[in-house]
Amino acid sequence: MKRFLLFLPLVVALGIGAFALWGLWADRNPKEVPSALISKPAPEFDLPPIPGVDVPGLKRADLTAGGPPVLVNVFASWCVPCKAEHAVLSRLVKEKGVVLYGINYKNKAEDARNWLADLGNPYSRIGFDLSGRVAIEWGLTGVPETFIVRGDGTVVYRYVGPIVGADAQKKVMSALREAGWKEAGK
């Protein structure tokens, strides 16, 4: 017992050191804050479509209709990382058959229209959130941000930042599968 007490200060110091090291760890992202929405129902909202874009708007009822889990992606034409992410999202829709909804955040209709015409529109529904109020309902901290919503309208996952690179895609895909999503034809 006495022997053990002798080492106690060392153990405590190592513990504090490990905690400090964790704080300085380069791979740790201090901006990664868990969303308050996880395992909660999607917020109440009803957004009109972007004027002049031929996909319907987005409202809560669209997320509670049952069916496979969907991606809800918050994007804007002025957001550069969104452009990088756009190719990934398009591929997920085209090749894997993922259902993708969009919330167009604080974007002029014309800019959003041009952006989608330019890059293509992978979204099957887009809500036009000019004031950014609905984004606050979703607890948005920046664009882009992507949520996974189950067929019953429960938010199960959030990805902050662009889904670019193998790691990010793997994370999102495994979260999708965990939410009950199955790749078409498998």
């Binding site: 804050v33 868990p34 607890g139």
Partner: peptide, 8 residues
């Protein structure tokens, strides 16, 4: 605010 953004 906490309902949307958590205690954080």
């Amino acid at each position: 605010l906490v309902a949307r953004y958590g205690d954080f």
